[in-house]
Design a protein around this nucleic acid. Sequence first.
DNA 1: ACCGATTTTGCAAACGATTTCAGAGTTTCA
DNA 2: TGAAACTCTGAAATCGTTTGCAAAATCGGT
Lengths: 329, 329
Amino acid sequence: MPVTIQDVAREAGVSVSTVSRALASPEMVREATRLHVVETANRLGYRPNRAARGLITGKTGNLGVIVPDLSNPFFPAVLKGVQSQARGADYAVFLADCDENGAEEAALVQAMAKQVDGVILCSSRMSPSQLERTIGTTSLVFINRSVRDQPVVVMDVAGGMRQAVDHLAALGHRRIAYLQGPRASWSNQQRRRGLRHAGRRGMAAAELGPFAPTFEGGLHAADLALAEGITAIVAYNDLMALGVLARLADRGVKVPAEVSVLGFDDIPMASMATPSLTTVAMQNGKAGRAAVDLLVNLISGAAAGELRRELECQLIVRASTAPPAHVRH
Amino acid sequence: MPVTIQDVAREAGVSVSTVSRALASPEMVREATRLHVVETANRLGYRPNRAARGLITGKTGNLGVIVPDLSNPFFPAVLKGVQSQARGADYAVFLADCDENGAEEAALVQAMAKQVDGVILCSSRMSPSQLERTIGTTSLVFINRSVRDQPVVVMDVAGGMRQAVDHLAALGHRRIAYLQGPRASWSNQQRRRGLRHAGRRGMAAAELGPFAPTFEGGLHAADLALAEGITAIVAYNDLMALGVLARLADRGVKVPAEVSVLGFDDIPMASMATPSLTTVAMQNGKAGRAAVDLLVNLISGAAAGELRRELECQLIVRASTAPPAHVRH
DNA sequence: ACCGATTTTGCAAACGATTTCAGAGTTTCA
DNA sequence: TGAAACTCTGAAATCGTTTGCAAAATCGGT
């Protein structure tokens, strides 16, 4: 039923090779025949079968993306960038969700390998040994995880944390708490690295947790943070920060009058919360697009391709941060 | 580099046909050779090339999903269901985002057609004529759009609206407003259909809008709704409802004391808002899974497959709805 | 009008699987 | 022991493309 290159060839009165060339390498056929072939192809509505082509060229024209959890709004945002950039480069996208499971993630890469030219791994959950076994099966690009000798797109989370720290220091805070996310997470490590900046600003920073990087995790963490006698709370991500806001509201603690709260990610919810949440924005879409660029370069064998793309983070100051009570004017 | 069926055959000392049979139709080969083949296949790490297989079988083992906008949290939730069910049925998933554009959506189906066994269209934005041209290119299943003679998974949105109406009526409301979403949206039509139930409950329902189905749309709509002298506002979706909440808070209108607010979708944000939002929950994940089931049935030629799957909606009562002031006890 | 150089085209072999068909082995039973 | 009836296995065709190589067509120059 679907129209093949054979059909076009027969209809146009030329051989299949000519059709193939007319469409793929126009300079190899006479202009007149090219026009004729292209016209019949369009008329019949011919679309080449990419799988068949891939069989012989070794390139599928597809790429894969694996995310840990689609219900975390962070990932759809990245995905959206991947989508649009991939479409622009004429690639189709395979998607898989590994449910925060490293083993599953590794298995998915294996399963995809034959059908794609490369895979983008967002915040990969693989253990080092899983990683080692996976590298080499297909081209890989990592987002928000730094892997030796592999192309990566990372966000300068540490820099973002330093901005947050500077902001709080400038407001006059002296004791702050950082609520950790998953201990093994690269992102969490980076935030902690940035947090060391607090010392240079004359602030004491308590590290609490780890907590679940969710709204519930924030509810849980809020009380522990308050007990530390701090005036500002920096949460691992916005979901947690929103949980903190909710819990503080329940306990009658005024934000930002008594305690400032700060998150990471700038998810859409952050600006809608009351008070609206000061947060470190990530360029998710841009990260997705950059990853596609890296991957496409890698595939096309451009050895000159850069291996590391670093994206800036940006502190967005909203209503949840203010000077602490004792310096209030 | 990748290991093919040839490699396995050579290593095992049998023909490729035998390898193929040993793996695909175990009953056709002697148990001893089957074991031997399977063992060598595993040892070499053989994974069949699905594209090559698809070429001859006519089945790709892939399916496609097209969503209007990944940044609307509604769709990742559906996608998650699609993902898990597809994996269970041994299908890989192609994803595309059509940016709310019907023409783009149609083009994407065309582009995917050759690489998938079928496509799931979430809240399709195609015009009737685009639809007509698209139907037939590949197997289709629609989610949340009712299309004549095509398999669909729909949510009983009208029923959900009736639950909402009953809830408000029971609380004693007499005048309510419905804030419309996109006029052309099937979902919006269904909500309006359900809204007619208000009359039977002795309530007057004003239909306002259409408004953008976003937070900003809610900000915009809130003032208009208040001007109608109502005691309850039903928004097209949660994003809008959150916008309404924010605007009412700004204007010092107490929710739910003075006005009740109600949304649709039960996005994660809904339970985190203050006050937490009463809303009509959709079974997004289940819809995704049901769509995969329908599609798989369709593909495997089960003519007996049902064509319409309807999922219940469920009103979730939270803190944003209460009796109106004049009946407060 | 013819020759050689230069396009332009077609044939056929791949790519990695599945599947039909027929041949080779193995049983079963007279 | 031999024929008939199975059970297993392998050779080869096939799916829809691309591409190396050789044949055919075109062209320029005499």
